[in-house]
Protein backbone atom coordinates (compact mmCIF):
# COMPACT_ATOMS: atom_id res chain seq x y z
CA UNK A 1 0.00 0.00 0.00
CA UNK A 2 1.39 3.33 -1.07
CA UNK A 3 1.29 6.07 1.55
CA UNK A 4 -0.70 9.10 0.50
CA UNK A 5 0.64 12.53 1.38
CA UNK A 6 -2.42 14.74 1.70
CA UNK A 7 -2.60 18.51 1.84
CA UNK A 8 -6.27 18.72 2.72
CA UNK A 9 -8.23 18.11 5.89
CA UNK A 10 -11.30 16.17 4.77
CA UNK A 11 -11.58 12.43 5.07
CA UNK A 12 -9.64 10.42 2.54
CA UNK A 13 -11.63 8.60 -0.13
CA UNK A 14 -10.74 4.94 0.02
CA UNK A 15 -12.36 3.85 -3.24
CA UNK A 16 -10.07 3.06 -6.13
CA UNK A 17 -10.69 5.35 -9.08
CA UNK A 18 -12.56 3.90 -12.05
CA UNK A 19 -11.29 4.62 -15.55
CA UNK A 20 -12.57 7.63 -17.44
CA UNK A 21 -14.02 5.38 -20.15
CA UNK A 22 -16.06 3.34 -17.72
CA UNK A 23 -17.07 6.46 -15.79
CA UNK A 24 -18.56 8.32 -18.74
CA UNK A 25 -19.89 5.38 -20.78
CA UNK A 26 -23.56 6.22 -21.48
CA UNK A 27 -24.75 2.61 -21.20
CA UNK A 28 -22.50 0.87 -18.75
CA UNK A 29 -21.20 4.03 -17.13
CA UNK A 30 -20.39 4.05 -13.43
CA UNK A 31 -21.32 7.69 -13.06
CA UNK A 32 -22.25 7.01 -9.47
CA UNK A 33 -18.59 6.38 -8.69
CA UNK A 34 -16.98 9.13 -6.62
CA UNK A 35 -13.40 8.44 -7.69
CA UNK A 36 -11.89 8.45 -11.17
CA UNK A 37 -8.43 7.74 -12.42
CA UNK A 38 -7.07 9.80 -15.34
CA UNK A 39 -4.34 8.33 -17.54
CA UNK A 40 -2.02 10.69 -19.46
CA UNK A 41 -3.93 10.29 -22.72
CA UNK A 42 -7.36 10.86 -21.17
CA UNK A 43 -9.19 14.11 -21.78
CA UNK A 44 -9.74 15.74 -18.40
CA UNK A 45 -12.54 17.80 -19.92
CA UNK A 46 -14.64 14.62 -20.26
CA UNK A 47 -15.12 14.86 -16.50
CA UNK A 48 -16.33 18.44 -16.41
CA UNK A 49 -20.07 17.63 -16.42
CA UNK A 50 -19.62 15.46 -13.33
CA UNK A 51 -17.29 17.43 -11.10
CA UNK A 52 -19.83 18.04 -8.33
CA UNK A 53 -20.21 14.33 -7.67
CA UNK A 54 -16.49 13.50 -7.66
CA UNK A 55 -14.54 13.39 -4.41
CA UNK A 56 -11.26 12.08 -5.82
CA UNK A 57 -9.48 12.30 -9.14
CA UNK A 58 -6.28 10.34 -9.39
CA UNK A 59 -3.94 11.52 -12.13
CA UNK A 60 -1.51 8.81 -13.07
CA UNK A 61 2.10 9.55 -13.98
CA UNK A 62 3.42 6.26 -15.42
CA UNK A 63 6.70 8.09 -16.06
CA UNK A 64 7.67 11.39 -14.45
CA UNK A 65 8.71 12.81 -17.82
CA UNK A 66 5.19 12.68 -19.24
CA UNK A 67 3.79 16.06 -18.27
CA UNK A 68 0.23 15.78 -19.56
CA UNK A 69 -1.07 15.29 -16.02
CA UNK A 70 -0.06 18.86 -15.12
CA UNK A 71 -2.48 20.20 -17.73
CA UNK A 72 -5.19 17.75 -16.65
CA UNK A 73 -4.91 18.98 -13.09
CA UNK A 74 -5.11 22.64 -13.98
CA UNK A 75 -8.07 22.07 -16.29
CA UNK A 76 -10.02 20.40 -13.49
CA UNK A 77 -9.23 23.14 -10.98
CA UNK A 78 -9.94 25.88 -13.52
CA UNK A 79 -13.38 24.33 -13.98
CA UNK A 80 -14.03 24.59 -10.26
CA UNK A 81 -13.24 21.08 -9.07
CA UNK A 82 -12.69 21.16 -5.31
CA UNK A 83 -12.33 17.48 -4.48
CA UNK A 84 -9.04 15.71 -3.93
CA UNK A 85 -6.61 15.77 -6.82
CA UNK A 86 -4.03 13.09 -6.30
CA UNK A 87 -0.86 12.53 -8.31
CA UNK A 88 -0.04 8.83 -8.39
CA UNK A 89 2.73 6.74 -9.89
CA UNK A 90 6.21 7.98 -10.77
CA UNK A 91 5.89 11.03 -8.57
CA UNK A 92 9.28 12.30 -7.44
CA UNK A 93 10.22 14.90 -4.91
CA UNK A 94 11.60 17.35 -7.46
CA UNK A 95 8.25 17.53 -9.21
CA UNK A 96 6.11 18.21 -6.13
CA UNK A 97 6.25 21.99 -6.14
CA UNK A 98 5.09 22.26 -9.75
CA UNK A 99 2.40 19.63 -9.19
CA UNK A 100 1.16 21.56 -6.19
CA UNK A 101 1.03 24.75 -8.27
CA UNK A 102 -1.12 22.94 -10.85
CA UNK A 103 -3.69 22.04 -8.24
CA UNK A 104 -2.61 18.69 -6.82
CA UNK A 105 -3.30 18.43 -3.10
CA UNK A 106 -2.41 14.79 -2.59
CA UNK A 107 0.47 12.62 -3.70
CA UNK A 108 0.81 8.87 -3.80
CA UNK A 109 4.40 8.33 -4.94
CA UNK A 110 5.54 4.82 -5.83
CA UNK A 111 8.66 5.39 -3.76
CA UNK A 112 7.88 6.87 -0.39
CA UNK A 113 8.59 10.53 0.26
CA UNK A 114 8.64 11.76 3.84
CA UNK A 115 6.20 14.43 4.91
CA UNK A 116 9.06 16.68 5.92
CA UNK A 117 10.79 16.38 2.57
CA UNK A 118 7.54 16.98 0.72
CA UNK A 119 6.78 20.09 2.76
CA UNK A 120 10.22 21.44 1.96
CA UNK A 121 9.88 20.67 -1.74
CA UNK A 122 6.51 22.37 -2.01
CA UNK A 123 7.99 25.48 -0.42
CA UNK A 124 10.85 25.64 -2.96
CA UNK A 125 9.73 28.92 -4.57
CA UNK A 126 9.61 32.05 -2.44
CA UNK A 127 7.37 33.68 -5.06
CA UNK A 128 5.97 32.70 -8.45
CA UNK A 129 5.86 34.29 -11.88
CA UNK A 130 2.54 32.92 -13.11
CA UNK A 131 -1.03 32.88 -11.97
CA UNK A 132 -2.20 29.28 -11.77
CA UNK A 133 -4.83 27.64 -9.63
CA UNK A 134 -2.98 27.59 -6.31
CA UNK A 135 -4.20 31.01 -5.24
CA UNK A 136 -0.71 32.52 -5.09
CA UNK A 137 -0.30 36.06 -6.33
CA UNK A 138 2.22 36.20 -9.15
CA UNK A 139 5.20 38.52 -8.90
CA UNK A 140 3.65 40.92 -11.42
CA UNK A 141 0.63 41.31 -9.16
CA UNK A 142 2.84 41.94 -6.13
CA UNK A 143 4.78 44.56 -8.09
CA UNK A 144 1.68 46.43 -9.09
CA UNK A 145 -0.41 45.66 -6.00
Amino acid sequence: MVDVLRYRTDEMVGDPGVTVDSFVDPVFGQTNASAVRLEPGDDARALLPYLDRLALVEVNFPAYGDGRGYSSARILREAGYTGELRAVGDVLIDQLSHMHRCGFDAFAPEHAITREAADKAIATWPEVYQRTVDGRQPIWALRHG
Binding site: G67, M99, C102, Y129, Q130
Partner: peptide, 12 residues
Amino acid sequence: QWSSFHPEFDYL
Protein backbone atom coordinates in the same frame (compact mmCIF):
# COMPACT_ATOMS: atom_id res chain seq x y z
CA GLN B 1 9.43 35.66 -16.59
CA TRP B 2 6.22 33.87 -17.55
CA SER B 3 8.15 30.83 -18.78
CA SER B 4 10.53 30.65 -15.81
CA PHE B 5 9.54 27.69 -13.64
CA HIS B 6 6.18 27.49 -15.39
CA PRO B 7 4.64 24.61 -13.46
CA GLU B 8 2.50 23.22 -16.27
CA PHE B 9 5.14 23.23 -18.97
CA ASP B 10 8.22 21.72 -17.34
CA TYR B 11 7.70 18.26 -18.87
CA LEU B 12 6.66 19.04 -22.42
